[in-house]
């Protein structure tokens, strides 16, 4: 346990030094501020640029603000997280820094768990910062809007973000290059997306957690629709982490 805490601290320090923490905080903060503002001011912007199209964007609501938020965070935000953390093990392979620490008695599961814990902590802080800022701005710009399940929708996306990190960890353990681990993640994501399209497996895929958040706010789907994907996500994350540890235990460095 002390090894885990020490190595996790080292991971956090490293992520601060190589600017991952800074990039994550700044970008997620900007998304949090930008989404409500974009929703609010798109009509005015459209009027200035394309007056004939402006009518389609009139009367933005708090729902538009959250639509922007989930669009930005689930596509750009998560992609950036993946790109940033895809090099978390490949750098260590090429520099050979892990071999030294492993011979000095650091256990292999600790490496994986600490790497994941550091990445998850950074994602969690940045994501909820972003959500908090977006929440504040939306409440300020649309004072009398009341939408259902705002926190639950955000919670679902957060769980999905952690799942993506777990998939990425397995990718990083399986492949030496960071590019290949991103590719691995993409393949898994596409498979999860396809499973959602097939009638027999629709309603189970974790893809729901990143794509249906706005429907939850607008009332198009209910909370119960999210429960099974949520449970599957959590179990899948745990399974992926265990698989990463097993593979990493057998891996030659």
């Amino acid at each position: 346990m002390s090894g885990f805490i020490a190595f996790s601290k080292k991971e956090i320090t490293e992520n601060t030094r190589n600017y991952r923490l800074l990039i994550m905080l700044v970008i997620f903060f900007i998304f949090g501020v930008m989404s409500p503002l974009l929703a609010k001011f798109t009509p005015q912007l459209m009027e200035a640029v394309m007056p004939n199209l402006a009518e389609a964007f009139e009367n933005p609501s708090a729902l538009d603000s959250w639509t922007q938020f989930y669009k930005n965070v689930s596509s750009l935000g998560l992609s950036l997280t993946i790109i940033l953390f895809s090099s978390c093990l490949s750098g260590e392979y090429t520099k050979g820094t892990l071999a030294i620490m492993l011979t000095k008695g650091l256990s292999r599961p600790t490496v994986i768990l600490s790497k994941f814990a550091a990445a998850a902590a950074i994602l969690t802080v940045s994501y909820w910062l972003s959500f908090g800022v977006a929440y504040g701005y939306t409440a300020y710009l649309w004072p009398d809007a009341s939408l259902p399940h705002i926190f639950f929708a955000a919670f679902a996306l957060w769980i999905a973000g952690l799942l993506y990190l777990c998939i990425l960890m397995l990718g990083c353990v399986l492949f030496r290059q960071s590019f290949t681990s991103i590719l691995f993640l993409l393949v898994i994501t596409v498979i999860m997306g396809l499973l959602e399209q097939i009638e027999q497996t629709a309603g189970y895929s974790p893809v729901i957690l990143v794509s249906k958040n706005v429907d939850l706010l607008s009332g198009a789907v209910t909370v119960s629709y999210f429960i099974i994907p949520l449970i599957i996500s959590v179990f899948m994350s745990a399974a992926l982490l265990i698989m990463s540890i097993v593979v990493f235990n057998k891996k030659q460095l």
């Binding site: 700044v26 900007i30 503002l37 001011f41």
Partner: peptide, 28 residues
């Protein structure tokens, strides 16, 4: 006019972007 009317709520956005650019510039 929209920019000026809503300056207080836009400042955090500009500040974050400028600060991020400056940190990168110093590093460069």
């Amino acid at each position: 006019d929209i920019l000026l009317d809503n300056l207080p709520i836009l400042i955090p956005l500009f500040a974050a972007q400028v600060a991020f650019g400056l940190i990168a510039l110093v590093h460069v």
